[in-house]
């Protein structure tokens, strides 16, 4: 990650395959990740994660240099990484509102 990456993306440790949004990015915007332009299909808020490398199904998702679960499906570069495609190796998450 370098000047070829949008300043709104924060990489927490070298080698992480996800980075964190420091600000909201709106649907329709293009965001630069390692020199590649990625179209944002939906608005994502502060704190949400984007894949900064393709992550094959079953591979660890790495943040803070630690695994935070595994890819439940193939995740392309630039995709939103969240509860729909990232599964815990510990307790599963059930969302209630």
């Amino acid at each position: 990650m370098n000047a070829h990456t949008d300043p709104r993306l924060l990489t927490l440790a070298p080698g992480d395959n996800v980075s964190v949004l420091k600000a909201t990015v709106a649907a329709g915007e293009d965001i630069l990740i390692g020199g590649q332009s990625v179209h944002m299909p939906q608005t994502l808020g502060l704190g949400h994660k984007l894949a900064v490398a393709p992550i094959p199904a079953g591979e660890d998702v790495i943040k803070y240099a630690f695994p935070i679960g595994f890819a439940a499906q193939d995740i392309p570069l630039g995709a939103h990484v969240h509860i729909h495609n990232l599964t815990s190796r510990h307790t599963t998450v059930e969302i209630m509102e």
């Binding site: 808020g45 949400h48 994660k49 969240h82 509860i83 510990h90």
Partner: peptide, 10 residues
């Protein structure tokens, strides 16, 4: 989860 956290280990 709304705030961007996806798993307990994260």
């Amino acid at each position: 989860a709304t705030g961007g956290l996806s798993t307990i280990e994260e």
